[in-house]
């Protein structure tokens, strides 16, 4: 059983929801990424989504675009993202790490080399925004060989027939995009969302994470009601953008992430 599957089984046992913070690797500074990851876990994160910076992040809003640009300026590469996960794993053997990013850096790295290195570093799953299941055959085979998951998205525009297709390919968890738009965009339409999640739940038992548009305790609470996990990205990244050192990072995460983790597990 994968670390990701184990995590969701544990959470379910205690009727808890997973909080999945997203950060961009190497932002605001490469030396801060591992401390940020540990601090997120300490303050209630169950799974970490680590962004692999890309020069042309088409599906991301301005906050994550700029964090990627900064990380790349600081010399962040796919190789160093994998090193970061390895360093995190030295101390934390339990928290699943999901890499999130775009396909071109992986094409350049080579699929097999990437999957093998990622597995050895302790990566649990990958989510490639511009690689839908139709184009994932080669990557999926490799990931399975190394006992890793490929996380797929379900969007507000994904109809039932396509949901069934995606869910037949999915493992680990399914990521439901709460709004039409890029990461960090405006407000979620909760009526549509609850229908969408109900439909997904009727097709599959796979855990459902909800993201895009979650920005505080209130919005996290509203989506936690429907899913098994809440992803919070842009709001956290913009908070981290103002941090200069480890002290800043720890107090920012404590004041922002901890209340959300507590709130979604009280509901």
């Amino acid at each position: 059983m994968s670390r990701l599957e184990q995590t969701f089984i544990q959470l379910k046992k205690y009727k808890n929801k997973a909080l999945i913070p997203f950060i961009t690797a190497g932002h605001p500074h490469p030396l801060l990424t591992v401390p940020i990851m540990h601090s997120l876990v300490k303050n209630g994160a169950s799974i970490i989504e680590l962004g692999m910076p890309f020069s042309d992040p088409m599906a991301d809003g301005i906050v994550i675009q700029e964090s990627s640009e900064k990380a790349i300026e600081h010399g962040m590469t796919l190789d160093s993202v994998l090193d970061i996960v390895g360093e995190f794993r030295e101390e934390d053997k339990d928290t699943p790490v999901v890499l999130m990013g775009y396909l071109n850096p992986i094409e350049k790295f080579g699929y097999e080399a990437f999957v093998e290195t990622a597995a050895n570093s302790g990566v649990d799953a990958v989510l490639i925004v511009d690689c839908p299941p139709e184009e994932s055959a080669e990557l999926l085979i490799l990931l399975k060989r190394y006992n890793m998951n490929q996380i797929f998205l379900i969007a507000p525009t994904t109809d039932k027939q396509r949901q069934m297709y995606i869910l037949s390919q999915a493992s680990g968890f399914i990521y439901c995009v709460a709004l039409k738009g890029v990461t960090g965009a405006a407000n979620v339409e909760y009526n549509d969302l609850s229908e969408k999640i109900a439909s997904v739940k009727s097709i599959s038992d796979i855990p459902v994470a909800i993201g895009f548009g979650v920005k505080d305790v209130e919005s996290a609470l509203s989506v936690a009601e429907y899913g098994d996990a809440v992803v919070i990205g842009s709001a956290l990244v913009s908070l981290l953008d103002r941090c200069k050192n480890q002290g800043d990072v720890e107090s920012a995460i404590k004041s922002f992430i901890k209340p959300i983790a507590i709130a979604i597990n009280k509901s």
Partner: peptide, 22 residues
């Protein structure tokens, strides 16, 4: 360029060693 993925299709792409578009 090398074979890669940009703007929705697989094609020849100009990117650096790390696959960042140049």
């Amino acid at each position: 360029g090398d074979i890669g993925v940009l703007h929705g299709n697989r094609t020849y792409v100009m990117s650096d060693e790390d696959g960042q578009i140049i």
